[in-house]
Each structure stands twice: as C-alpha cells, then as structure tokens.
Design a protein around this nucleic acid. Structure first.
Lengths: 193, 193
DNA sequence: TGTACATCAGTGAACGCGCGTTCACTGATGTAC
DNA sequence: TGTACATCAGTGAACGCGCGTTCACTGATGTAC
C-alpha cells in the first residue's frame, strides 16, 4: 500500500531516529536492520526503499545522534558555560542512561573501524562539537584547542567509567576527570568556566 | 591425535595470543572463533577443549593484550617518565599501527557493553595501568589521580584520532592532547614529566 | 475535473552465508597394574 | 619396565539461527491527457 511522499519522508526520519537510538544502546554490529525497522514500527522488507544499504543508514543515524548530542551540550553551554557542559557529561546519570547521549563514547571504537561514509559523517559531527564547546570565546584558536582537550577527556573518561565493573572506581574516574577540567579552566584567564 | 599436556598448554597460549591480536585489529564482534583459531594455526573444532565459550576466550585475550600494553607503557615510563609514555601513546605511529597497543582505545565501546566476565578482566587491567602510570611518585593518591586523568585523555584522544577522516584534524587532536598533558604536568612540582 | 495508467511504500517469504556450538572420530598420551 | 586401557587434543562435518539482501506482490498515490 503506497504512502504519500510526505508520509514516506516521515517514515524515513522515523527509521533514522530509531536507528540512532538503537545503535547507541546496542552498538552498530549488534543492531540488525530488522531490529531498527521494528523500532520504527515497520517490517524489514521495506528498508531498501529508503536506504542503499546498512552502512548508509548508520552514517545518517550517527549524524542524527550527533545532532541531538550537540543540541544537548549546546544548551548546557548556553546556560552555564563549559563547566555546566562538562558536569552534565561526566555525570553518573549520563553514564547509566540506557540510551547514551554521546555517540563517540557509545560507539567510538566501532566508528574507528568503520568505512569512509561513516567516518565522514562522524568527522562532521566532531567538528561541530568542537565548535559548540569552543563557544564564543575571543581567541578562536585557543578555544578550539581547549575544546579538543576537554572532549577527548570527556569521551575517554566516560568510556572507562562504563567499562569498569566496580562502581566506586567508575565514579572516581568521572570525578577525577571533572575536577581536572574544572581546575584547569579556572587557572586560565578569559574562560567562562 | 592427542597432544601432550605441555603442547596443549602451549596451544592454549597461542590461541589467547592470536585472539588478543585479532580482536584489537577487527573488534570483538567481528573476530570469529574460526578466525582466531586459524590465526593460531588450528581448526575451529578444537576450540571447546580449551575454553568454555567465546566470552571466556575474549576475557583472557583482553588480559593478555592488557599485559602487553602495560609492559610497553612501563618500559617508556622507566626510560623517560610519564612524558615518554604519553609521547609514545599519542603518536601517529601508534594511531596507524595495524594492531593497536591499547585495548581500551581499540575496543573501549565494545567493552562497555560486555558482560561481567569481560568487564572484570578489563577492570583488573585498568587498575594495573593506573598503577603503572602513577609510577613511584611520593604522593600515591595524587599520582593515581593524575594517572586517571592522563589515561582518560590518552584513550579519548586516540579514539577520536582514529575515527576522524581528515589527517590534519587527526594529528591536531593528538597534538593538542599531548601538549595539554605535557604542559599540565610541567606546572606541578614533584613530577617526573 | 475525470479517467486510465504508471509508480512505488511497505509486506512477508525466501536466498545464501557465516556464526557459535556440537559431535563422531582418530590416534598419541597418560595411567594403572 | 611392559602392557592394556582410558583419556583427550585436534579434525572436519553438521546443527540451528540470525544476518543483510532480494523479490513478487498489493493497493494507494502520483501523473498524463
């Protein structure tokens, strides 16, 4: 039963959104086309009316997940600057969220082994994230460097905090990383943190 | 054709070593039992004479890979302190190595979704890595915190550097992270870096 | 505006394939006497 | 030390299953006149 173009476009968006959620929860390899289509309320057969293959959906899903993460982090930045963004990110609630916010912490090592299409999408998201974390500081170059440093630490610490079996050790990692980023920024002039 | 106990023990070690290499190259999900056994010069049928199932081999392989990483980083520490360890880790040659040294950068997000046995092995390796990076500094507590901070940043930066499609951006991430860790440590007294 | 036809979104069955796991089998190793 | 038997490391075929992908089909939507 054919759907109208508008409905089809909505379906496509729903598939991308469902995939963006599912891959952050289960990983890319573990998220099957049938699972992602079912999460969007569809059967798997219609997949190829919308996407060339699994990789193309994944790259779009990463862009969508990245967009949501940027929006979340951007809101924190607007409200409380870099400190608020870091606090929100390096929190136990983010660590324990069933659907992680950040695709890099949730899927980093899988993305590192992915193909060109996926890596290109990831690179674009990463550049936007750097720009978001750099904010509107006067020294663009320095602010960008700080954003790279902060995001590297945030992603590394969150990844380790999620690996670790011991709850105390996990919190220790988040706290040490947060303390470091907070203390570091407060030493430097012209930072909003 | 039955092998002697000694030969069987060597076979087991060879399987673990082959698995440790393969999973860092391809990821855990993508490394099949048949591939790992073949890499050790065996056929897949004999696998269950040595391991209960795939997960148990993976947890042992992670311990083995972690042991090698700790040894490598420990050597750098002994020669040139934390600065040498960080320099070696955040290098383009480590980034581009076909078999990554560090299991956390290579498999971090997969480990975060793994089961108890695997997480326990990973946690043990991580604790040893922290101890190695803390070295023999007088203030144990502070040195441990610094090690956590340094390793979080190293793993996050290496993961991002491997994801990124653009070579300049990739090097920029490694350099910014390295500069930060180097500059930060040089500000603090009593550090060997 | 109405009509005839082409298009195509979505379904559900089917495909070939590789996966983890099981199993019968072989014959050298280990053990009991 | 020798002998008879049990053990078991490793092989290769087989299993059931889920995967990504393909395809015939349905009928509402879109298009041409």
């Amino acid at each position: 039963l054919r759907k109208s173009r508008q409905e089809a476009a909505q379906t496509r968006e729903a598939i991308v959104a469902a995939a963006a959620d599912l891959i952050r929860r289960t990983g890319i390899a573990e998220a099957s086309l049938a699972d992602m289509m079912a999460a969007a309320g569809l059967t798997h057969g219609g997949f190829y009316r919308h996407f060339r293959n699994k990789e193309h959906l994944i790259s779009e899903a990463l862009s969508a997940a990245g967009g949501k993460a940027i929006a979340t982090i951007g809101q924190k930045m607007a409200k409380g600057g870099l400190k608020a963004a870091v606090d929100g990110y390096l929190s136990t609630s983010h660590r324990d969220s069933p659907t992680p916010i950040c695709p890099f912490a949730a899927l980093g090592s899988e993305m590192a082994r992915s193909r060109k299409v996926t890596k290109a999408a990831a690179t674009e998201v990463l550049e936007k994230l750097f720009a978001t974390l750099a904010g509107d500081a006067p020294d663009r170059e320095e602010a960008r460097g700080d954003a790279i440093v902060a995001l590297s630490m945030m992603i590394g610490a969150m990844t380790l905090a999620r690996i670790v079996a011991d709850s105390d050790l996990s919190s220790e990692i988040l706290d040490r990383a947060n303390d470091h980023l907070t203390g570091w920024a407060s030493q430097q002039p012209g930072r909003s943190m």
